[in-house]
Design a protein around this nucleic acid. Structure first.
Lengths: 248, 248
DNA sequence: GTACGGTCTTGATATGAATCAATAGCGGAT
DNA sequence: ATCCGCTATTGATTCATATCAAGACCGTAC
């Protein structure tokens, strides 16, 4: 009996890190031009997710890390009780899934905040490659430690700062991440809902809303829905350091 | 002119991971018996710090990770304004410094909470070795991701849980870490001061104190200074899930 | 032993943000 | 174009925890 004919799966487009505009932010930044091919060999490129779709789910087998090509992703953990905690927002050039490295299952859920395309790095191949390319391994360590540090900063923000300080810090963080991509650091559109901001920063939605309007009244920002303009970056920086002053 | 005689520095005792009672918790757990020698080759063992001494300082060049052999360590970050945030407590068998991997400088300060001995893993040698031993590399990824996850859990605790829930969670965490070392999980002595607990959990010292006495009055724990006895572990677990119930 | 500095506890009060409640705005579906 | 549901804003009230203040405890040094 004939085997059912299986059309050869069109292999995912081979990635072209060489030509990617994000190569100076993403994994390629760690390695030499001539070794880039080896990274390209393991990358699967071009998967696209619509807003709201899950890139992966907590407690399902960990298979890959993902680099954001365009769009934005939020990650969150769900505790036993079903309570959600947003653990991070990921913008183009950033790597999602590091918190699951070395684990059997994903430690969090990743969800597209808007139409988002990603590059996929299968973890077994990535580990193999980092074993061969010391620079890449070093960079992975670096990225992971960055994530630890970022998380510690967040903890600090949550435990020591007021609502205004937290939101100012988030706006500045987003601003600098837009700037890294040569986009306006003062005029951008928030990829996430107020709700996500609130959850991430450990606040109630209402509080986020109030702080936005307060900032607006002070002329520090101008916001209409998700469109934000930072009118006075210095003032925002002052807000994040306000705490410092009072305790100096 | 004669060079001043330099006595040959007594080389730090070569580590004996083979015989270390913590080898099932520490890095050795990741690798085969026959490769253990290679780890031993790079480890420097036996440095001892008195209570209050710094193992390393934030913003100084990152040279090594440290495994706690005995005693306990707290890590903290100091923000520009001088505000301290305790980021973690490290017990025997645990690895300190992962948040600095791949960085030039230490991302935090590590301080001995009591008389503490450590094993030192020079980072260049460690990276070299993880490049050669895939299992060890995998384990490093695992440990680092664990730290990210732990930090996310902490963020969740800080942003969503009451003072009682946070403290219950800490007590249970310590309990299970003592148990891993075959020590009593119900009867132990806190390595850290109330102040450190408060800082770590984003609370005021007074609040920590009050919660301890409240737990004591409820017969959940018995505490006298740093000596703690968990009288009703179930109740503690219930406290940490209390939040769940109300929102179920 | 006594004195001292730091850690810890306890009480009274103040406050920032949560919660509750209602309305407004906006986008997608029909 | 209209309706509906979801997201966001705004106001009134409540509450957990910080802050302020005072005293107790405990180990260490003299």
């Amino acid at each position: 009996m004939a085997q059912p004919i299986r059309l050869r799966q069109v292999s995912p487009l081979k990635a072209s890190c060489h030509q990617c505009s994000l190569s100076n932010l993403c994994l390629p930044l760690a390695i030499e031009e001539n070794e880039l091919d080896r990274l390209e060999d393991i990358v699967q490129q071009g998967r696209i997710f619509n807003r709201g779709e899950h890139i992966f789910d907590q407690s399902t087998p960990f298979r890959s890390c993902f680099a954001v090509k365009s769009g934005a992703i939020k990650t969150s953990i769900i505790s036993e009780n079903g309570e959600e905690q947003v653990t991070g927002f990921f913008m183009p050039g950033e790597l999602v899934g590091l918190d699951s490295m070395g684990s059997k299952n994903y430690a969090c859920t990743a969800k597209a905040l808007e139409r988002t395309s990603v590059c996929e790095f299968p973890i077994d191949k990535l580990e193999e490659l980092t074993g061969k390319l010391p620079d890449l391994q070093h960079h992975m360590y670096h990225l992971m430690s960055q994530e630890i540090q970022g998380s510690h900063q967040l903890a600090m923000l949550l435990s020591k700062n007021t609502a205004e300080e937290r939101i100012a810090a988030l706006l500045l963080s987003l601003s600098s991440r837009f700037q890294r991509r040569r986009m306006s650091g003062t005029n951008f559109s928030l990829p996430m809902a107020r709700n996500d901001i609130a959850n991430f920063l450990g606040l109630a939605v209402e509080t986020v809303s109030r702080v936005f309007t307060r900032f607006q009244n002070q002329g520090i920002i101008s916001a209409r829905g998700r469109e934000v303009e930072l009118l006075d970056v210095e003032a925002l920086q002052t807000v994040t350091r306000e705490f410092a002053r009072q305790n100096a």
